[in-house]
Design a protein around this nucleic acid. Structure first.
Length: 502
RNA sequence: GGGUCGUUAACUCAGUUGGUAGAGUAUCUGACUUUUAAUCAGAGAGUCGCGCGUUCGAGUCGCGCACGACCCA
């Protein structure tokens, strides 16, 4: 990955000649006392061409983003993590020796400097540099200062460059950090404990998905990267930690898209002595309040569509949604055979063992999901598609479960947890019987989890929220790759076959 | 997995009917001590994603492949 080009070669030569002058190319020890952002207010009272009284010396460090050189003076724009500030460098202020060195500095170099504040003719606050230190010599040219980096492939592969030159990209990732911080803060304030459970699991459980496989040499055993932390978090409920959450990666060995990355960040949380209805209330409050904090409003725009996250959010059972939004005749939903026939008519291919619950869920995904723009909780999921959820007391065919949809996309999934060990074992066994030949999904009964339930798990409700999708929504990002710092891509083609490497 | 589109200088992009590869930014040289995409003069910079084919001749046409984007499954 060290392909040569002229600029790189020229920069290396320049670096060598600087080193020959005795300039340290990668010095350490420069510690800026100030940031760009904090200096701007200090210059507010200054008029054009006015210097700050007292001549206090400030120091900053950052990357040179632009340079306008004159014969014996220059202006540089220097960017640190807080923003940008202009530097003015004059030969008769910094001295001949330093100025000679400075002439070989480039856009992209990371530098430190100290000086006094003044405003230019047109009123831009600037630092009149008195000291200059090279902190890191840059050998590669930055992208076009005006157009920036627009090739998305390069933006994903070389995120470091993207972050240097694309302010919008920096903002998205800062927002991501803030959202995750606020989620933690919210759950901590509700006395949830943050825990970490295994990401390598002997039995991949808690969801139906294809896992990644790996192998532990010393233990001589196959392990799976987790597809969900659910079964471990519920073991903690058995242990008496009755409000737990985990924010961490799940891994699914499936296709990639604008909404799917093979590893993605999931919040899962479990609360004892609560029901799915309590969690709907919590979710509504948590997500809307976080949106208010990061966006200053609960009404936001997502890719050209207005979305209102103000509570209360709409709630519909799956059947209500099928009737009200898809316009399906309610009488059809009462008749299993007619439901199956309708699914077939709509072009849905069902597996041989699929029943009416699966058919209704498929119809919902096909006809309703994309129409749920403002936040909507869909409840009463069929038991058939909810192997870990508690059955409804009054109707054994449905569960006390919800999914949350915003902008036509699933954002959260929660339910009152099944804590009857006998029922759980039977459902696991049915799953394995139905899918036992599917090597990719690798269904296996987690007997230790059943054993844990046999000790008694409190009644509880649990939920998962896809953090990447939440960030996409709140940061108005069109693709999951825009909210993941280093999304997975196929390897770049080697530009040259490494011929003389032997 | 299928379809559509894209890949040309470090970056952003042109490239007409198949006939010597272009611009701006960046870089280099020179001038210039308050610029704001600084200006002026000059210069260098290319495996046109990769391969095969058609042709006297391919960035351009055809086929295959790679990578990416979007849509669909």
């Amino acid at each position: 990955m060290t392909e040569e080009n002229l600029t790189l070669a020229q920069r290396k030569e320049k670096a060598e000649s600087l080193a020959a002058l005795g300039v340290k190319l990668y010095s350490n020890g420069f510690s800026p006392a100030n940031t760009a952002a904090e200096l701007h207010p200090k210059g507010e009272h200054l008029g054009p061409q006015e210097k700050e009284e007292g001549g206090d010396v400030y120091s900053v460090a950052g990357r040179i983003m632009a340079m306008r050189k004159f014969g014996k003076a220059a202006f540089c724009t220097v960017a640190d993590k807080t923003g940008q500030i202009q530097i003015y460098i004059k030969q008769d202020v910094v001295g001949n020796e330093l100025f000679e060195s400075f002439k070989k500095w480039d856009i992209g170099d990371i530098v430190g400097l100290a000086g006094t504040l003044f405003k230019t003719k047109v009123g831009e606050l600037s630092i009149q540099a008195k000291e200059l230190v090279m902190i890191s010599k840059s050998l590669r040219p930055l992208p076009d200062k005006w157009h920036g980096l627009s090739d998305v492939e390069t933006r994903y592969r070389q995120r470091y460059v993207d972050l240097i030159v694309t302010p919008e990209s920096r903002e998205v990732f800062k927002k991501r950090v803030e959202i995750i911080r606020l989620v933690r803060e919210y759950l901590n304030s509700k006395e949830y404990m943050e825990v970490e459970t295994p990401m390598m699991q002997p039995i991949p459980g808690g969801a139906t998905a294809k896992p990644f496989r790996t192998y532990h040499n010393a233990l001589s055993m196959e392990l799976f990267l987790r597809i969900a932390p659910e079964l471990y978090l519920k073991r903690l409920l058995v242990g008496g930690f009755d409000r737990v959450f985990e924010i961490n990666r799940n891994f699914r060995n499936e296709g990639l898209s604008t909404r799917h990355n093979p590893e993605f960040t999931m919040l899962e949380f479990y609360q004892a002595y609560a029901t799915y209805e309590d969690l709907m209330e919590l979710t509504e409050d948590m997500v809307s309040s976080i949106c208010q904090k990061v966006n200053g409003s609960m009404k936001i725009e997502y890719q050209g569509t207005m979305v209102d996250l103000s509570p209360p959010w709409k709630k519909l059972t799956m059947e209500q949604a099928l009737v009200e939004i898809a316009g399906i005749d309610p009488d059809i939903l009462k008749n299993d055979a007619q439901v199956m026939a309708l699914a077939k008519e709509k072009g849905i291919e069902l597996e041989p063992l699929a029943g009416p619950g699966k058919a209704k869920t498929e119809l919902f995904e096909l006809l309703v999901e994309e129409k749920l723009i403002n936040p909507t909780f869909i409840t009463a999921y069929p038991t058939e598609v909810s192997p870990l959820a508690r059955r409804n007391e009054d109707n054994q065919d449905i569960t006390d479960r919800f999914e949350l949809f915003i902008t036509g996309r699933e954002l959260a999934n929660g339910f009152s947890e099944l804590n009857d060990p006998m029922d759980q074992l039977a459902r696991f066994e049915k799953q394995v019987a139905d899918r036992g030949d599917d090597e990719e999904i690798h269904p296996e009964v987690d007997l230790d989890y059943v054993r844990a339930l046999e000790y008694g798990m409190p009644s509880a409700a649990g939920e998962g929220i896809g953090i990447d999708r939440l960030v996409m929504l709140l940061a108005n990002a069109p693709s999951i790759r825009d909210v993941i710092l280093f999304p997975h891509l196929k390897p770049e083609q080697q530009s040259k076959p490494q011929a003389d490497s032997q």
